[in-house]
Design a binder for these strands. Structure first.
Lengths: 354, 354
DNA sequence: TTGAAAGCGGTACCAC
DNA sequence: GTGGTACCGCTTTCAA
C-alpha cells in the first residue's frame, strides 16, 4: 500500500489576492509594485488583502518571464590567489542555486588597492545590478561607490570595509575581535606572564590599528603579567619583516610571544628559527596558506586566525541577492567569526578549503 | 546617458534542443527524463544535442507547474531547546530561498534518544521526500532508516551520526577533532605541565569515546608534561556531576585543567567555586548556553567548544535539497569546524545566535 | 483606472 | 512514438 502524501498547503498567489479583492491580477500587480495608474483606495485594499493572506511572491516565476537576469560584478585582487580564490568560490557556491536569476561576473585587479578604479567604472558603465568588492583604497573608490549609490546599484564590501561610503553592507571579520582573540590566546599560553610583540603592516591602516587595540585590551583583561614590549611595522615586505624580527629577537632575549597580525608571517618564523628560539616563543599568525601548514604541524605556530574567505563570499552574495531579489536590507555590517586554527583542527580546515 | 546593459547570454532551453534536433518539446522531455515510449535513436540524438548545447534545466520553471513541493521532515529533540532551536533556525534559513519548491515539517521528540521512532514512522507513512534527523538511538532507528532507503527517501543525520545505516550523508562536528582541540588548548594553557581531568557522559557512547581519544592524542602531541589523571562519567546528571567533581578536586589538590566534553558543565563549575579553586584551573567546556556566558566573562571558563548548530542545520538542508532537486550526491560525511569561543569573541558569537 | 491576454521554461496529457 | 497544447505564478503590454 502506498503512503498518501498529505496535500501540501497551497501558497497564496497573486490571483488569490485578485479573487479576494474582486479586482484583476493586473491591478494586484500594480498595487504590489507601487506602479502608477492605480486608484489609491484600490491599492490599499489590495495591499491589505496581500498582507492578510500572507502573500509571498514566487521569485522563480517572477524571473521566468523576463530573461533580464540580475547581473552582479565581483571585484577582487589576484594576489594572494589562495585567499581571494576561496572568496570567489564562496560567491560562486552561494550563487549556484540562483543560476537562472543571477549572473556573476568577476573582474580582477592585480593587488589590493591597485588598479581598482578602472574595472569598477567599466562595470558601472555596463549597467550591472549589484557589486561585491574589496576596497583596498577606499579613498580612490569612494566617489565610484557614491556613483553606484546614486544609480541605485547596491555595493557589498568584503574583507575590508569602506564604512564612510553608502554601501549596502560589509562582510568581514571584525579586526578588533581578531586582535582580541590573538591577545587572549597569547595571554592564556603564557600563564606565567612575559614579554610579547605585535607585528603589523602599517599602523596607519585602520584595520591594523583596530587589531592592535583589540590585542592590547585582551592582554589587560586576562591580566597575568603579559606585557606588550614592541609594535613592529613590516610594511608587508618580507625583507623588512625579517630584519625587524631579527632585531626584535636580539633586543628581547626572553621574548615569550609574538602575534603577526598580517599574512606576512613567514619572515618572522624564519628569524625565530635562525635565532634557535623555535618552540620557546608562542606565535600566533594570520590566515592560512601552504607555507604555514608545516609550521603549525611542527608547533612553531601555536595558532593562526583564519578569516574564512569562503564564508565571507557566501554571505556577501546572499546579502546582495536578498536585497536585489526581495528588497530585504541586511544589517549594516556582517561580522564573520574567525576560526582559530591549531594543529588539532588543521587537517579539517584544509579539507574544507580543498 | 544611461548605461547599456550587455544582453545577458541566453540560456539554452528545452525548445532550443527541440529546434536543434527537429523534434517536438514533448519528445525532448521524454528523452531527458528517461520516460518510456520513445525511439532509442531519437533519445540518443536529443541527449547528444542537450549535451552539446550545454542544457541546464530551469528548476524554478520545473516546480512552477506541479505544486508537488518537495516535503522534508525534520526530527529533533526538544531538549536542550537553545541548541536544537538554533539547528532548526539554520534549516529554516537555508530553506527560505526554496520556499516555493520545498516545505519543511518539524516533528519533535522529548529528548535525544527518546520517542524517536513514532514520529519517524509517521513521516514515512505520510510520504515525505526527505528526512533530517539526529539519531540519538541509532540501534532503534536503524530499521527505519533502512526502510527510508528502500523507499528512496534520503536521510541526512545531524549532530550525531548513524554511520552503519544507508543515510545520504551526515553533518556533524568530528568528535575526535573536538576532543583534540580541547586537548591542545588545555596543553597550551599549561606550558608548565600538570594534572588534568576529562568529564564525559557515558564512555560507552561512541562520540564520547572519540572525544577522549582526541583529547589524549593532543596531550601527547603537545607533550609539555600535561597528564590525564582522571576520566569521570557524569551520566548527564547534574547531581552526579557535582558530586564527582567535588571528589575529583579533593583527590587532586593540584589539578590544573578540566575538559567537560558534554553540555553538563555547570555542576563542575559550581564544584570548583565551592572549593575556591576558580581561576586556578583551566576549564574547557562544550557548547554555549546562557548560564555559561557569565562564567566565560569571568574567566572561570577559558574556552568553550561550540558545535555551531545553525551552520549544521544550514548544511544539512542544502545537502538534502541539492540531492532531491538536482541529484547531486554530497560527500559521505560533512564535518563542521567547531568554534573556539573565549571571552574575546563571546559577544560576537552571541550576536550571531540572536 | 482597470481588465484581458500573451509568454517565460517545463511538465503532463491527449490525440494521432 | 510523436506532436500539440493547457497550465504553473508572474510581468508586461495592449485594449477598454
Amino acid at each position: 500500500m502506498k503512503a498518501r502524501p498529505t496535500p501540501p498547503p497551497r501558497l497564496v498567489g497573486i490571483k488569490d489576492i485578485a479573487r479576494a479583492t474582486g479586482v484583476s491580477i493586473g491591478t494586484v500587480d500594480r498595487a504590489l509594485h507601487d506602479k502608477p495608474g492605480i486608484n489609491p483606495g484600490t491599492r490599499r485594499r489590495v495591499l491589505q488583502a496581500a498582507d492578510r493572506l500572507g502573500y509571498r511572491p514566487n521569485l522563480a516565476a517572477r524571473h521566468l518571464k523576463s530573461p533580464t537576469r540580475l547581473r552582479i560584478s565581483v571585484h577582487l585582487p589576484e594576489e594572494i590567489a589562495l585567499f581571494w580564490d576561496s572568496l570567489r568560490d564562496g560567491i560562486r557556491e552561494a550563487a549556484a542555486p540562483f543560476a537562472h536569476t543571477l549572473s556573476v561576473e568577476f573582474r580582477n585587479n592585480p593587488r589590493l588597492g591597485e588598479g581598482e578604479v578602472a574595472p569598477l567604472e567599466q562595470a558601472l558603465e555596463s549597467g550591472v545590478n549589484g557589486l561585491i568588492l574589496a576596497p583596498g583604497d577606499p579613498a580612490a573608490l569612494g566617489p565610484l561607490i557614491e556613483r553606484a549609490a546614486s544609480l541605485a546599484v547596491p555595493v557589498v564590501c568584503v574583507v575590508t570595509d569602506a564604512p564612510s561610503c553608502e554601501r549596502l553592507t560589509s562582510v568581514s571579520a571584525d579586526p578588533f575581535t581578531v586582535g582580541s582573540v590573538a591577545g587572549e590566546l597569547i595571554s592564556r599560553f603564557l600563564p606565567g606572564g612575559g614579554d610579547v610583540a605585535f607585528f603589523t603592516g602599517w599602523l596607519g591602516t585602520e584595520d591594523h590599528a583596530e587589531k592592535l587595540r583589540g590585542f592590547r585590551s585582551s592582554l589587560k583583561d586576562v591580566g597575568c603579567g603579559v606585557e606588550l614590549v614592541s609594535v613592529v611595522e613590516a610594511h608587508d615586505d618580507e625583507r623588512v619583516g625579517y630584519r625587524r624580527a631579527l632585531a626584535l629577537l636580539d633586543a628581547h632575549e626572553d621574548l615569550k610571544g609574538i602575534y603577526v597580525s598580517t599574512v606576512n608571517s613567514m619572515p618572522v618564523l624564519r628569524a625565530i628559527e635562525r635565532k634557535r628560539r623555535a618552540g620557546r616563543i608562542a606565535v600566533v599568525t594570520t590566515d592560512l596558506f601552504p607555507a604555514l601548514v608545516p609550521r603549525i604541524r611542527a608547533g612553531q605556530v601555536a595558532a593562526t586566525i583564519y578569516q574564512r574567505p569562503v564564508s565571507q563570499g557566501r554571505q556577501a552574495l546572499q546579502a546582495l541577492y536578498q536585497f536585489l531579489a526581495e528588497g530585504t536590507r541586511p544589517p549594516g555590517r556582517i561580522k564573520v567569526i574567525p576560526h582559530v586554527v591549531m594543529r588539532s583542527n588543521l587537517d579539517q580546515v584544509l579539507e574544507r578549503m580543498a
